[in-house]
Amino acid sequence: MMEEPYRWVEAVQARREYIEMQLAGGSPIAAVSCTDGVLFVTVSREQRKLFEVYDRIAMGAIGHPGDIERLRMSAIEVASAEGFNRSVQDVSLRRLAAYSLSPLLKKAFEEIYGPPFLARMLFVELGRNGAPDLLLQLDYDGAFRGNAGGGAVPGEPFAVLSGKTHSARQMEEYLRAKPLAGLTAQEVLPTAVEAWAVGHLALNAEPGAALPDAESVAAHREEQLQGGTLEAVLLDRNAPAHAAFRPLSLKGALKSGNPLVTPKKDSYSGSK
């Protein structure tokens, strides 16, 4: 098959369609920079979708749980080995994505005799010393775009992930229209959850449809929260070195006046 380039291109195209189809149902994820860190929000049904990668890095993913797990482990291993062999300061999301994960994904995607990764990921890295946060989308074919420049949305304080392209576009459109600068996690949370609802509604709508109105977004949000779990993580700018990743307890947090609470004894949030 390698002697026939056309068939290879065809095979890659078929595989792209197959993966897009597999990812199409994935529950969206929204990440928004705020004054106290980066807020990561999704609604999950069974598996957790938001994970700690390293001191200042977290990820969310949609796709096959097994593939997400392999990529998550790979990211943690590379970051941890680098952090041990050099220093914590030398671990960066840009290097992790560009030199480690992207080539791995591209290789698996284009080697058409082997299985590709059925996963689409959103990485977040807290900016050091007041530098802007890096929000980076990494796709199953190794393509990535970040908000730090070079990507489609440089400088924007948010990033989204969804099973379908038009759903992601609608979430971005929705967030772009909102004033996000200078808000706390508490203030950003309702907007982030609405962005999720916009994306989730769009999964079942036709591409090109207009943004749904506020009422249908709110209704959809309420309906989905009945059956799923609102999963939210704050990558905390003000936390001590190793404890930036803080899963939030959201009981009542969506109602105004109820503060965001981080669970005291979370099994995976401890340590320094």
């Binding site: 700690e52 943690i76 941890s80 041990f84 190793h242 401890g270 340590s271």
Partner: peptide
Amino acid sequence: MLEHSFQFYRRSQLQE
């Protein structure tokens, strides 16, 4: 080594 292994364990295994 201990510091990094405990953190690695927490991150990879999702428990302390």
